[in-house]
Amino acid sequence: MTGSPSAAGADLRSDLVALRRALHAEPEVGLNLPATQAKVLAALEGLGLEITTGRGLSSVTAVLRGGPGPVVLLRSDMDGLPIVEATGLPFAAENGAMHACGHDLHMAGLVGAARLLTARRDELPGTVVFMFQPGEEGYAGGRMMIDEGVLDVAGERPIAAYAVHVDCVTPGGQAVTRPGPIMSSASALRVRVVGTGGHAAYPHHGVDPVPVAAEVILAIQSFTARRVPVSDPAVISVTRLSSDSAASNVLAGSVSLELNIRALSRETLALVRTDLPAIMVAIGEAHGCTVEVQFIDSYPVTVNDPTETAHTLALLDERYGDRVVRLPFPGMASEDFAYVLDEIPGTLVFLGVQPKDGSGGPMHSERALFDDSYLDEHAALLADLAVRRLTR
């Protein structure tokens, strides 16, 4: 296949910006995104793709068949966040939700890649699957799409999978990635410390679970600092804390905590999953309380395949030169493209889209701003990744 899709990318910019802004103005949260799905389907109309939609979620899968050859998958997420937007943009959302993680740009970028690749279908030595996924923000939509067959929709499994994630605090036009783990797993522990309750004036007549819960929280900090190796870290945060006391003069009968757990390896996660609950139970027993612990598994570690990422970095070096950043360490946020990368070798790349004046807030902020003038680059990068892999 001669040449590259890159040169055609700029011609798409105005259309992709318009699509992105329409998506931004009407975000939807979770797995059921009918309006978002309709916009994506309309944007793909007329390209001659084999399109299927999800059964249990508002996903869109589109298959582009070129000539004989392997299959490559390109992925975008679709859902917004339950955040009231405060950007002041003329196309700002007004429905209590917001595309504060850039998924509106992801959809527009993947639509652009589909248009670029469709225009060169006759030269394409293989098949490309375009995966538009709801429910990335905590709903495991990627896993649901895998369960519904997205990896087998083309008749054979992809040999590689790629995704581009924008970042509104990375300078515009920078491309950022690394081989190996790039984002952490995300799990949770739900903990209930059960005492007996009683009169606040006579705590010695009962078993007050509140100070016991305080000891548990301190033990969590010590566990992270002293039991988890610094070379393979974990971040454990207590994100919820409440008691069942309904009055200031009533001792709580129980205290509930929720922990968010981030880890970069299965080994460290297994350590946290087994040893930390045992410590909590022992603290409870020492004070006459029962401690109930429920582990909730969520997103796995996002791992970039070393071989695929070496080829990706070679392409990035060609396209971006000194704007390529090789991350020295993984980040502790999570991403459910991890489910795809658990099955298919591939790479997640971050693309900087910070506004040129540095305005706006961080990702997941009500003030997050994204420069959508890079959408043609976004689309062309995805298309280039597919072409390079099919022709390797």
Rank of each mutant, 00 (worst) to 15 (best):
P179F: 07
R178I: 01
S373L: 09
P181Q: 07
T312G: 12
S222E: 15
E28P: 12
P345W: 04
D104Y: 08
A282W: 12
A154C: 06
V71M: 09
V293F: 08
I83F: 07
P125N: 10
Y202I: 13
Q37G: 12
R262F: 02
V349D: 00
G46R: 04
P328F: 01
G46H: 07
A93M: 04
A201W: 05
D297F: 05
R65M: 03
A380S: 15
R20F: 09
P233M: 03
Y139V: 03
V250T: 14
I296F: 02
S248A: 15
D232F: 10
T274Q: 14
V40C: 12
G197Y: 05
A108P: 06
V17M: 12
R192T: 14
E136G: 13
S265Y: 09
V281E: 13
L151C: 06
V191A: 03
G206S: 05
P328G: 12
I283D: 03
H99T: 05
A380M: 04
V325L: 09
R227H: 15
R190P: 12
V238N: 12
M183P: 12
R20Q: 13
G360L: 03
T177F: 05
G112S: 07
A93S: 15
R388Y: 13
S231K: 11
G9N: 07
R121C: 09
E28K: 08
L81W: 05
A219I: 00
H103W: 03
A86Y: 09
Y339R: 00
Q37Y: 02
F132C: 06
F295E: 01
E45T: 09
A386F: 08
P171S: 14
G155W: 11
S76A: 15
P134V: 04
M183H: 11
R240K: 15
G56V: 02
R319K: 11
E308F: 01
E28N: 10
M131A: 13
H364S: 02
S243I: 01
A186P: 14
D342I: 01
P345H: 08
G112L: 01
K39G: 11
G321S: 07
F350I: 02
F91N: 03
T302D: 06
H204Q: 11
I83Y: 06
D232H: 09
S184C: 09
E215A: 12
I279R: 01
D297T: 13
L57H: 13
P229W: 08
A25D: 12
P179A: 07
R319H: 12
S4L: 02
A383S: 13
P328L: 00
R21E: 09
L74R: 03
R266Q: 15
V228W: 05
V228T: 05
F295R: 00
A386G: 12
L116G: 03
P306Q: 07
T53M: 05
A338D: 07
G141S: 11
G138S: 08
A42M: 07
P125A: 05
L341C: 03
G198I: 01
Y202T: 13
P181D: 01
G346Q: 04
Y374E: 11
L31H: 04
H106C: 08
V207A: 05
D305G: 08
A92Y: 09
G284C: 07
D322P: 14
A310W: 04
V40K: 02
D322M: 02
S334W: 04
M98F: 11
A38I: 00
S265N: 10
C168G: 09
V250S: 13
D297H: 14
L316R: 00
F130T: 02
L241A: 14
